[in-house]
Design a protein around this nucleic acid. Structure first.
Length: 896
RNA sequence: GGGCAUAUAGCUCAGUCGGUUAGAGCGCUACACUCACAUUGUAGAGGUCACUGGUUCGAAUCCAGUUAUGCCCACCA
């Protein structure tokens, strides 16, 4: 043969040129079609600040597999890519960079700072996209979107104005989560809770009338400066007489009342709660119930403001320290105890969150949530695995209003203007020129920007061109599947479904695939701070993109977390090499000028041809069904084991003799045609998982064997990407022959087993005798005589029914066969006998257990008839085997 | 405090409708490198299916409880 591939697959020389070609030829492009059905996935947009990690690699590999599979099935498949502006994250990154030069964003001013971020985005914002490309992802890059580009901004403004006009967006002064480091409000979902070793301080507040003290317990003593009351339970006998009295708050000398509220737990702390409506969510609610004033004692940066009396200007923690010390010196610190609490932190910078009173914008969630709840209940949106629907519903059913304003500069400006003259509020999709109430022309835009997740929520339709009525919106919406991890079910998935129903009238996607989280070897999350991450790009360099993709999917079961180590990628690397070498073998051994254009004459098929075609057909069926249920791991496992265990281990070995130049031409041709057709189909099955390797090998094969179907029909296809996904009925099945082949494999394995356990080299030709057990098996062995001789490396063999051991034989029990290998002097009778005794013992053990089960009258009475029958048949088989073992032991003893 | 997940070979994990002599990959042991691939092949060893109880003719599988680990939610100061 003219071609000889190198013996090792070298991904580096293959990947880059193939990807370039895919792009140049526009294979990833998709457009609305009159003839094909749409299949659409929108990418979870990575943050522009992000660097590719294993989570991205897994998430996008799954999407690429689905997209490539559907594309091969003939769908008009669009994978729509894009990136997220990631408000806080990006602003923080650029601020940190400026800080290196000693510049703050305030030094630059808002406009210049935002310019700098755009510049940063130009330089670095596409890095993650370039990294994604290395994995071979087939996104339609010409449609790449960015959450801050003009189209998406228009969608954001349109949505805001409509919700505002419908009264679903409102502004108000509420207690929100404030990050004193980022200087912005956060939604409840952006707050993380971390267990912390804190303290519980018991503070004494003197009664105004001097009649004593009341003791409260707190974890944040500095907030006492904002206390406007102390609450006790109305039924608490200890304090009932104090209700209505007043206390004099130290340091600020404010008179505050003792109130009764049933929210107070009598059995916690002292049973008295200090009430700080401006700095605690519970207290805020309690304050409302009792009309307590709200005293804000903090500045946005976390220092104490002018309401803090002697502590004004101190940082919140410095204030805490000094305040506690002064309370102690005043004799008002009753005790200080260790106390474990759950500290609220900013999900971006991990500073401690302060509940903070401020003017913010909110979305009313309740009514928007209802269709999203209904969608999950009706099955319009399905989760895989379905247990995640519970998490989704729990959130939606208890959803609270969403704080959407952020005191940042990077993001979508809130499309609201205030009339400087009459304070009228104008919400508009573009800047108004005058006040619609007083006609004043001096208008000021709201200084805040929107939560990043506000624009993300619109992603499935804003990326398709909405609010314009584009052909894409009509054709691709709703999209088909969303692939993501469990961490953003509330942040993103639920909000997309809500917005989808609100603005498109239906669900944004029909299926939500939640995959597992990538962990390190010992089961910890991979994170920058732990430094335990594995860089996908490094793994690509080392093992190749296909090996990376394959290994990840092989490790990922139905949303289970994945414990990963670099060693795991060897599995993928080894498999790519195996595939490479199977094709290499084909190119080396198959004849030139194969007449592939004729339909193959099936009458020339050998047992193993029929078997491999049957196995291929079964594998296609399994893989297709599993992929359809989003179960990629069982699908690729089936393909893997077909390729390695069936095709390479058995079929390829079986046809080696057929492919020799001296083999009969017809046989050589038939074996080659079958092998070629199977390889072709296998490469197509593998393509979604291992796109580079399969494309490369498919072309290598095509160079010499242009048509590869069994039918001989011409398939004009310039890339495996667009070749049809195999259909199980493309390949004939032969049930009886497939079983016969399994018997042959048993016979071969039995001989190999004799070799292995008796230390007989593979190259020594043996003579074998088989007791076939029954006439059917006997004829199967006889009719594949050549194959058996070859695969087991036998000089000759005899087979019969009821054949007994010739003297001096090694005996191998391999139901339904028994194998004897005459070894003459070489046989160790004692060892053979010992071996058989162990087998006998095991066999008898099994028989006893089975007999006990069958002897139970209830079994016969209650078990289904087919099971009873099956078990009896099994018992008979086991007894027959037992008898053989006994016979062989006796024969050996006679020799001994 | 509530919810969810997980527990099977030394390690990482499969195991469908309850009926198997409980499987795979890695690792380990032995043997084999002219003949696609040593990133390989052949064979082997290795298991009280976390624990307790229950349902059942029959349980790794179903139910209840326990233990351990992980994740999510939650206003007890």
């Amino acid at each position: 043969m003219a071609i000889n591939l190198p013996p090792k697959y070298d991904p580096k020389s293959v990947e880059e040129p193939i990807y370039r070609q895919w792009i140049e030829r526009g294979y990833f492009r998709s457009a609305p079609s009159d003839t094909r059905s749409p299949y659409c996935i929108v990418i979870p947009p990575p943050n522009i600040t992000g660097a590719l990690h294993m989570g991205h690699a897994l998430n996008n590999t799954i999407q690429d597999i689905l997209i490539r599979w559907k594309r091969m099935q003939g769908f008009e498949a669009l994978w729509l890519p894009g990136t997220d502006h990631a408000g806080i994250a990006t602003q923080n990154v650029v601020e940190r960079e400026l800080a290196k030069d000693g510049i703050s964003r305030h030094d630059l001013g808002r406009e210049e700072f935002v310019n700098r971020i755009w510049q940063w985005r130009e330089r670095y914002g596409n890095r993650i996209v370039e990294q994604l490309k290395r994995l071979g992802f087939s996104c339609d890059w010409e449609r790449q979107r960015f959450t801050l580009d003009s189209g998406l901004s228009k969608a954001v403004n349109t949505v805001f104005v409509r919700l505002y006009n419908e009264g679903l967006i409102y502004r108000g002064n509420y207690l929100i989560n404030w990050c004193p480091r980022c200087h912005t409000a956060l939604s409840d979902d952006e707050v993380e809770h971390r267990p912390t070793n804190g303290k519980l301080w018991h503070l004494k507040y003197p009664l105004s009338d001097g009649s004593g003290f009341i003791t409260v317990a707190t974890t944040r003593p500095e907030t006492m400066l904002g206390d406007t009351g102390v609450a006790v339970h109305p039924d608490d006998p200890r304090y009932i007489h104090l209700i209505g009295k007043t206390l004099r708050l130290p340091f600020v000398n404010r008179e505050i009342p003792v109130i009764a509220d049933s929210a107070v737990a009598m059995d916690f702390g002292t049973g008295c709660v200090k009430v700080t409506p401006a700095h605690d969510a519970n207290d805020y609610a309690m304050g409302n119930r009792h009309n307590l004033p709200r005293v804000n004692v903090m500045n946005p940066d976390g220092t104490i403001n002018e309401n803090g009396g002697p502590f004004t200007g101190l940082d919140r923690y410095e204030c805490r320290k000094r305040l506690v010390a002064q309370m102690a010196s005043l004799g008002l610190l009753e005790k200080e105890a260790d106390y474990d609490l759950s500290l609220s932190e900013c999900y971006r910078c991990h500073s401690a969150i302060e509940p903070y009173l401020s003017d913010q914008w909110f979305v009313k969630m309740h009514s928007l949530a209802q269709p999203a709840i209904e969608a999950a209940k009706s099955g319009a949106v399905k989760f895989h695995p379905d247990r995640w629907v519970r998490v989704y519903l729990d959130w939606l059913e208890n959803v609270r209003d969403w704080c959407i304003s952020r005191q940042l500069w990077w993001g979508h400006p809130i499309p609201v203007w205030y009339c400087d003259n009459c304070r009228n509020i104008i919400a508009a999709t573009s800047a108004p020129t005058k006040c619609d109430k007083c006609g004043g022309t001096s208008l000021t835009q709201d200084p805040d920007v929107l939560d990043t997740w506000f624009s993300s929520a619109l992603w499935p339709f804003s990326t398709l061109g909405w609010p314009e009525e584009t052909p894409e919106v009509k054709y691709y919406y709703p999209t088909d599947v969303l692939v993501t991890d469990r961490g953003i079910i509330y942040f993103w998935v639920a909000r997309m479904v809500m917005m989808g129903y609100k603005f498109m009238g239906r669900e944004p996607f029909g299926d939500v695939l939640i995959h597992g989280t990538i962990l390190d070897e010992v089961g910890r999350r991979m994170s920058k701070s732990l430094g335990n991450g594995i860089d996908p790009i490094e793994m690509i360099e080392q093992y190749g993109a296909d090996a990376l993709r394959f290994s990840l999917v092989m490790l990922t079961l139905e949303g289970q977390d994945v414990k990963l180590s670099t060693k795991k990628f060897e599995m993928g690397r080894n498999f790519t090499n195996k595939i490479w070498n199977a094709v290499r073998f084909a190119l080396m051994k198959m004849p030139e000028g194969l007449a592939t254009e004729k339909p193959l004459d099936l009458s020339g098929l050998q047992l193993y041809d029929k078997w491999i075609l049957t196995r291929l057909s079964q594998t296609i069926e399994v893989a297709t069904a599993e992929q359809g249920a989003f179960r990629l791991n069982p699908a690729i496992s089936a393909i893997y084991s077909f390729f390695w265990n069936d095709l390479c281990d058995w079929y390829l070995e079986a046809i080696k003799a057929d492919l020799q130049p001296e083999a009969p031409a017809a046989r050589r041709e038939t074996a080659s045609r079958v092998f070629l057709a199977v390889l072709d189909a296998a490469l197509r099955l593998l393509h979604p998982y291992m796109p580079y390797l399969t494309e490369e090998l498919w072309h290598r094969l095509a160079e010499f064997y242009p048509v590869r179907d069994l039918s001989g029909s011409v398939r004009a296809c310039e890339t495996i990407m667009l070749a049809p996904w195999p259909v199980s009925t493309d390949f004939p099945r032969f049930a009886r022959e497939a079983e016969e082949m399994e018997l042959l494999k048993t016979a071969v394995s039995a001989v190999r087993n004799v070799r292995g356990s008796r230390n007989i080299m593979d190259k020594v030709k043996l003579t074998a005798m088989f007791d076939a057990g029954c006439a059917e098996n006997l004829s199967a062995l006889e009719s594949s005589r050549d194959l058996l001789l070859r695969m087991a490396n036998l000089k000759s063999f005899q087979a019969g029914v009821g054949v007994t051991s010739p003297p001096g034989s090694a005996t191998e029990i391999a139901p339904p066969l028994t194998l004897f290998v005459p070894l003459g002097e070489l046989v160790d009778v004692e060892a053979e006998r010992a071996k058989l005794s162990i087998t006998l013992e095991r066999q008898r053990d099994g028989i006893m257990r089975l007999e006990a089960r069958l002897a139970n009258p209830e079994f016969a009475a209650k078990a289904p008839a087919n099971i009873v029958e099956k078990e009896h048949a099994r018992l008979a088989d086991m007894k027959a085997t037992e008898a053989k073992i006994v016979r062989e032991i006796k024969a050996l003893e006679m020799i001994g």
